[in-house]
Design a protein around this nucleic acid. Sequence first.
DNA 1: TAGATTGTTAATCGATTAACAATC
DNA 2: TAGATTGTTAATCGATTAACAATC
Lengths: 209, 209
Amino acid sequence: MKDYISKQTLLRIPSYLALLQQQKKIGVNYISATTIAAMLGLNHVQVRKDLSCTSTAGKPKVGYETDVLISDIQKFLGYDNVKNAVIVGVGGLGKTLLNYTGFESYGLNIVYGFDINESLIGILDNDKEIYHINDLYNKVAGSDIKIGIIATTEEVAQGVCDSLVQSGIKGIWNFSPINLNVPKDVIVQNENMAAGLALLSNRMNNIEE
Amino acid sequence: MKDYISKQTLLRIPSYLALLQQQKKIGVNYISATTIAAMLGLNHVQVRKDLSCTSTAGKPKVGYETDVLISDIQKFLGYDNVKNAVIVGVGGLGKTLLNYTGFESYGLNIVYGFDINESLIGILDNDKEIYHINDLYNKVAGSDIKIGIIATTEEVAQGVCDSLVQSGIKGIWNFSPINLNVPKDVIVQNENMAAGLALLSNRMNNIEE
DNA sequence: TAGATTGTTAATCGATTAACAATC
DNA sequence: TAGATTGTTAATCGATTAACAATC
């Protein structure tokens, strides 16, 4: 296990976890790096190198024990140290994220949401509460909430970001298509749905030619 | 403009487009690579190199004309050659994608959706229709629909993928957390929400130490 | 034991950045 | 003209892959 882990490796780790959980479900108790690599279309040396960042589970001839690998990756991603988050903007995407139960494996617990639209305020099916955006500071400042998820329109994203920072948020997961200005000690992760789409289109066009 | 464009560049192009559209809106008619780089936290040489893949708009001293750059990038992404797509699985995420209007800039038009759940079948607010999954082949085979978006649970994703391939789909944008098996001439782009989350968590943990 | 696998070190490849010439 | 900018070529850096030793 290393202390510095490359960006590329970090981006691949969740896909290992997803594959392993799926394999576990169908009864695979041991799996080799070669098998994982073939299934994900990666190089087997790369898989081994990536896995060595999160786990020491490998055994020559046997491969990796699925269970151990899953729990090591979860531990690496923060499963034992789940961070609380709030989401701002609970329209389509925001509501989807708030309802999604799979983030716990990745160390994220979305505790509640905020919106400016009165009609969205209340309690969702999954018991998660939506508050008015005006209550953000009161609810978040001084709490143990350290991550803010922005799923608003781009027009209000910077304002929401400022409120989150004021309330003590240290990490922002930004789904709005805008670049946010934040103080140096706040980390922003921009999520852009269209990036993958650009790759797909380009690869499809190349094949046509 | 080059013929081969690196994966990293392709992934950045949508963020240039988003920034330019936003700048245009606030009245910026000319913009330099240095400014773009500063706003997105990138190197200015890299920005110039990336933009040279999609455009020839740059003028020394002046910079890039925002309008020209926007339309060149849109053209590059396929705005004049919009591809039709269908989406399978119109629960939370699927419905969000179907309702999202911003994909046209990226050359994607989602024409309608499919679901197995009878209660979701009908017409959405945006006039887009949802059909039963059993109608997939009849609707898609022989049509001009070339992209399938999978937003189902992982349990049914491979089956849906097989149906899409059978119906003549050549590109799959996969939001299910599973690796799909497809023939060689079909391109799969896997989208994994958790990848960005892994990066954010890791960077936050590194700062704490 | 032989063979399949892990894990590491060295070589290659690709992407980023630095230096510089060209242009308006 | 001088200076800000573009765009390209060369150097650096980081990530991937190949080769190989270690292990069960």
